[in-house]
Protein backbone atom coordinates (compact mmCIF):
# COMPACT_ATOMS: atom_id res chain seq x y z
CA UNK A 1 0.00 0.00 0.00
CA UNK A 2 2.76 2.36 -0.87
CA UNK A 3 1.22 4.12 -3.86
CA UNK A 4 -1.21 6.83 -2.86
CA UNK A 5 -3.54 6.24 -5.83
CA UNK A 6 -4.10 2.72 -7.14
CA UNK A 7 -5.83 1.33 -10.27
CA UNK A 8 -6.92 4.76 -11.43
CA UNK A 9 -6.02 4.69 -15.10
CA UNK A 10 -7.87 1.53 -16.11
CA UNK A 11 -10.83 2.50 -14.00
CA UNK A 12 -11.18 5.95 -15.58
CA UNK A 13 -10.45 4.64 -19.08
CA UNK A 14 -13.49 2.37 -18.80
CA UNK A 15 -15.63 5.34 -17.78
CA UNK A 16 -14.47 7.60 -20.58
CA UNK A 17 -15.08 4.85 -23.13
CA UNK A 18 -18.58 4.22 -21.87
CA UNK A 19 -19.36 7.92 -21.77
CA UNK A 20 -17.75 8.45 -25.17
CA UNK A 21 -15.72 11.43 -23.97
CA UNK A 22 -12.10 12.47 -23.60
CA UNK A 23 -10.67 13.36 -20.21
CA UNK A 24 -10.16 17.07 -19.72
CA UNK A 25 -9.25 19.37 -16.83
CA UNK A 26 -12.24 20.32 -14.65
CA UNK A 27 -11.51 23.99 -15.31
CA UNK A 28 -12.74 23.48 -18.87
CA UNK A 29 -16.28 22.70 -17.70
CA UNK A 30 -17.03 24.74 -14.57
CA UNK A 31 -20.45 24.15 -13.06
CA UNK A 32 -22.77 27.10 -13.73
CA UNK A 33 -25.93 26.79 -11.63
CA UNK A 34 -29.16 27.31 -13.54
CA UNK A 35 -30.68 29.38 -10.74
CA UNK A 36 -29.65 31.31 -7.64
CA UNK A 37 -32.18 29.82 -5.22
CA UNK A 38 -29.62 28.93 -2.55
CA UNK A 39 -28.60 32.59 -2.32
CA UNK A 40 -32.07 34.04 -2.75
CA UNK A 41 -33.64 31.97 0.01
CA UNK A 42 -33.93 34.10 3.18
CA UNK A 43 -31.87 36.88 1.61
CA UNK A 44 -32.13 40.54 2.60
CA UNK A 45 -32.93 39.96 6.27
CA UNK A 46 -31.44 41.94 9.15
CA UNK A 47 -29.51 40.25 11.97
CA UNK A 48 -32.56 40.65 14.21
CA UNK A 49 -34.80 39.01 11.65
CA UNK A 50 -32.34 36.17 11.14
CA UNK A 51 -32.13 35.65 14.91
CA UNK A 52 -35.93 35.40 14.94
CA UNK A 53 -35.82 32.75 12.19
CA UNK A 54 -33.21 30.80 14.14
CA UNK A 55 -35.21 31.03 17.37
CA UNK A 56 -38.26 29.57 15.66
CA UNK A 57 -36.21 26.80 14.08
CA UNK A 58 -34.40 25.63 17.22
CA UNK A 59 -37.74 24.94 18.90
CA UNK A 60 -38.11 22.09 16.40
CA UNK A 61 -34.66 20.65 17.06
CA UNK A 62 -34.84 20.50 20.86
CA UNK A 63 -32.32 23.28 21.37
CA UNK A 64 -32.43 26.50 23.37
CA UNK A 65 -31.15 29.87 22.30
CA UNK A 66 -30.17 32.17 25.16
CA UNK A 67 -29.55 35.83 24.27
CA UNK A 68 -27.11 37.86 26.31
CA UNK A 69 -24.78 40.83 26.32
CA UNK A 70 -21.06 40.29 26.54
CA UNK A 71 -21.00 41.56 30.12
CA UNK A 72 -23.41 38.81 31.25
CA UNK A 73 -21.87 36.01 29.21
CA UNK A 74 -19.78 34.50 31.99
CA UNK A 75 -22.70 34.40 34.40
CA UNK A 76 -25.00 32.77 31.85
CA UNK A 77 -22.47 30.06 31.01
CA UNK A 78 -21.67 29.29 34.63
CA UNK A 79 -25.38 29.03 35.37
CA UNK A 80 -25.90 26.55 32.53
CA UNK A 81 -22.97 24.42 33.66
CA UNK A 82 -24.29 24.50 37.22
CA UNK A 83 -27.73 23.42 36.05
CA UNK A 84 -26.11 20.39 34.41
CA UNK A 85 -24.33 19.48 37.64
CA UNK A 86 -20.90 21.10 37.05
CA UNK A 87 -18.26 18.32 36.78
CA UNK A 88 -15.60 18.38 34.07
CA UNK A 89 -15.85 21.12 31.45
CA UNK A 90 -13.86 20.73 28.24
CA UNK A 91 -12.64 23.85 26.50
CA UNK A 92 -10.79 24.46 23.27
CA UNK A 93 -7.49 26.31 23.46
CA UNK A 94 -8.93 29.41 21.82
CA UNK A 95 -7.86 33.08 22.08
CA UNK A 96 -11.41 34.24 21.56
CA UNK A 97 -12.29 33.42 25.18
CA UNK A 98 -9.94 36.18 26.30
CA UNK A 99 -11.18 38.54 23.60
CA UNK A 100 -14.78 38.30 24.85
CA UNK A 101 -13.77 38.61 28.48
CA UNK A 102 -14.15 34.95 29.42
CA UNK A 103 -10.80 34.84 31.17
CA UNK A 104 -11.91 31.85 33.21
CA UNK A 105 -11.71 29.84 29.99
CA UNK A 106 -8.43 31.24 28.73
CA UNK A 107 -5.81 28.50 28.70
CA UNK A 108 -3.11 30.90 30.00
CA UNK A 109 -5.15 32.69 32.61
CA UNK A 110 -7.86 30.35 33.86
CA UNK A 111 -6.03 29.39 37.06
CA UNK A 112 -6.50 32.94 38.33
CA UNK A 113 -10.27 32.62 38.16
CA UNK A 114 -11.98 30.17 40.46
CA UNK A 115 -15.16 28.39 39.38
CA UNK A 116 -17.38 25.55 40.69
CA UNK A 117 -16.36 23.05 38.02
CA UNK A 118 -13.21 21.37 36.72
CA UNK A 119 -11.71 22.80 33.56
CA UNK A 120 -9.80 20.80 30.99
CA UNK A 121 -8.32 22.13 27.77
CA UNK A 122 -7.99 20.50 24.38
CA UNK A 123 -4.20 20.29 24.13
CA UNK A 124 -2.53 21.37 20.93
CA UNK A 125 -0.61 18.84 18.88
CA UNK A 126 -0.74 15.24 17.68
CA UNK A 127 1.01 13.94 20.81
CA UNK A 128 -2.11 14.63 22.87
CA UNK A 129 -4.43 12.44 20.84
CA UNK A 130 -5.29 9.84 23.50
CA UNK A 131 -5.33 12.37 26.33
CA UNK A 132 -7.69 14.73 24.49
CA UNK A 133 -10.11 11.98 23.47
CA UNK A 134 -10.11 10.57 27.00
CA UNK A 135 -10.81 14.01 28.50
CA UNK A 136 -13.61 14.63 26.01
CA UNK A 137 -15.24 11.31 26.85
CA UNK A 138 -15.20 12.18 30.56
CA UNK A 139 -16.46 15.75 30.12
CA UNK A 140 -19.93 16.65 31.30
CA UNK A 141 -19.93 19.89 29.29
CA UNK A 142 -18.03 21.38 26.35
CA UNK A 143 -18.03 25.10 25.57
CA UNK A 144 -16.87 26.34 22.17
CA UNK A 145 -17.32 29.19 19.69
CA UNK A 146 -19.44 28.86 16.57
CA UNK A 147 -18.08 30.24 13.33
CA UNK A 148 -21.64 30.78 12.10
CA UNK A 149 -25.22 30.22 13.12
CA UNK A 150 -27.33 29.17 10.14
CA UNK A 151 -30.76 30.72 10.73
CA UNK A 152 -32.84 28.52 8.45
CA UNK A 153 -31.71 25.20 9.93
CA UNK A 154 -30.68 26.40 13.40
CA UNK A 155 -27.20 24.95 12.90
CA UNK A 156 -23.92 26.06 14.33
CA UNK A 157 -20.76 25.71 12.25
CA UNK A 158 -17.46 24.62 13.80
CA UNK A 159 -14.05 24.07 12.24
CA UNK A 160 -11.23 22.03 13.69
CA UNK A 161 -7.85 23.54 14.54
CA UNK A 162 -4.95 22.43 16.69
CA UNK A 163 -6.64 23.71 19.84
CA UNK A 164 -10.07 22.33 19.01
CA UNK A 165 -10.41 18.75 17.86
CA UNK A 166 -13.30 16.93 16.29
CA UNK A 167 -14.46 14.87 19.24
CA UNK A 168 -14.72 17.95 21.48
CA UNK A 169 -18.14 18.49 19.88
CA UNK A 170 -19.35 14.89 20.11
CA UNK A 171 -18.13 13.10 23.22
CA UNK A 172 -19.19 15.45 26.06
CA UNK A 173 -22.73 14.97 27.41
CA UNK A 174 -23.77 18.64 27.20
CA UNK A 175 -22.68 21.34 24.79
CA UNK A 176 -22.70 25.14 24.86
CA UNK A 177 -22.04 27.07 21.67
CA UNK A 178 -21.13 30.75 21.89
CA UNK A 179 -22.46 32.60 18.84
CA UNK A 180 -21.65 36.26 18.14
CA UNK A 181 -24.88 37.77 16.79
CA UNK A 182 -22.94 39.19 13.85
CA UNK A 183 -22.21 35.62 12.77
CA UNK A 184 -25.81 34.67 12.07
CA UNK A 185 -26.24 34.03 8.34
CA UNK A 186 -29.35 33.00 6.39
CA UNK A 187 -28.48 29.39 5.63
CA UNK A 188 -25.89 26.72 4.87
CA UNK A 189 -25.20 28.38 1.51
CA UNK A 190 -23.27 31.21 3.15
CA UNK A 191 -21.13 28.83 5.20
CA UNK A 192 -20.32 26.71 2.14
CA UNK A 193 -19.43 29.90 0.22
CA UNK A 194 -17.18 31.08 3.04
CA UNK A 195 -15.12 27.87 3.12
CA UNK A 196 -15.10 27.64 -0.67
CA UNK A 197 -13.64 31.12 -0.94
CA UNK A 198 -11.20 30.53 1.89
CA UNK A 199 -9.87 27.51 0.04
CA UNK A 200 -9.79 29.39 -3.28
CA UNK A 201 -7.63 32.08 -1.64
CA UNK A 202 -5.16 29.37 -0.67
CA UNK A 203 -5.83 29.63 3.06
CA UNK A 204 -5.58 26.50 5.18
CA UNK A 205 -8.81 24.97 6.35
CA UNK A 206 -9.32 22.76 9.36
CA UNK A 207 -9.52 19.11 8.37
CA UNK A 208 -13.11 18.87 9.54
CA UNK A 209 -16.01 21.30 9.26
CA UNK A 210 -19.25 20.40 11.00
CA UNK A 211 -22.72 21.93 10.67
CA UNK A 212 -24.44 20.85 13.89
CA UNK A 213 -28.18 21.28 14.44
CA UNK A 214 -28.87 20.63 18.11
CA UNK A 215 -28.42 17.41 20.06
CA UNK A 216 -27.90 14.02 18.45
CA UNK A 217 -31.08 12.05 17.86
CA UNK A 218 -32.56 8.98 16.26
CA UNK A 219 -35.93 7.77 15.04
CA UNK A 220 -34.74 4.25 14.41
CA UNK A 221 -37.00 2.55 16.95
CA UNK A 222 -40.55 2.67 15.62
CA UNK A 223 -39.76 6.13 14.27
CA UNK A 224 -40.22 7.60 17.74
CA UNK A 225 -37.75 10.44 18.23
CA UNK A 226 -35.08 9.84 20.84
CA UNK A 227 -33.02 12.93 21.67
CA UNK A 228 -29.41 12.19 22.59
CA UNK A 229 -27.71 9.19 21.08
CA UNK A 230 -23.97 9.17 20.35
CA UNK A 231 -23.40 12.88 20.52
CA UNK A 232 -24.48 15.40 23.19
CA UNK A 233 -27.83 14.89 24.87
CA UNK A 234 -28.47 18.60 25.40
CA UNK A 235 -27.29 21.66 23.45
CA UNK A 236 -27.65 25.40 24.11
CA UNK A 237 -26.67 28.27 21.80
CA UNK A 238 -25.69 31.46 23.63
CA UNK A 239 -26.09 34.37 21.22
CA UNK A 240 -24.02 37.38 22.27
CA UNK A 241 -25.75 40.53 21.07
CA UNK A 242 -22.82 42.94 21.04
CA UNK A 243 -20.24 40.71 19.38
Amino acid sequence: MTELIQNREDFLKNLTEKLGIERQPVESHPFEPMNQLPHETLSGKTQDELLQVAKERVKKIHTNIVETKQADLEGIINELIGKWGNGKVLLPTDNRFKEVGLNQFDANDYANHSVDFDRAFWQKGADYREENIQTASEANVAVAFAEFLLAESGSIVVETHAGQGRSLHFLPTHYISIVPKSKIVPRSTQAADFYHEKRAKGETLGSAIHFISGPSNSGDIEMQLVVGLHGPIEVVYVVVEDL
Partner: peptide, 11 residues
Protein backbone atom coordinates in the same frame (compact mmCIF):
# COMPACT_ATOMS: atom_id res chain seq x y z
CA UNK B 1 -35.55 17.89 8.14
CA UNK B 2 -34.08 21.23 7.08
CA UNK B 3 -30.62 19.70 7.40
CA UNK B 4 -29.60 16.50 9.14
CA UNK B 5 -28.32 17.09 12.68
CA UNK B 6 -24.75 16.59 11.55
CA UNK B 7 -23.53 17.75 8.15
CA UNK B 8 -19.83 17.04 8.13
CA UNK B 9 -17.03 17.76 5.68
CA UNK B 10 -13.81 16.01 6.63
CA UNK B 11 -10.69 14.28 5.39
Amino acid sequence: QTLTTYVTFAG
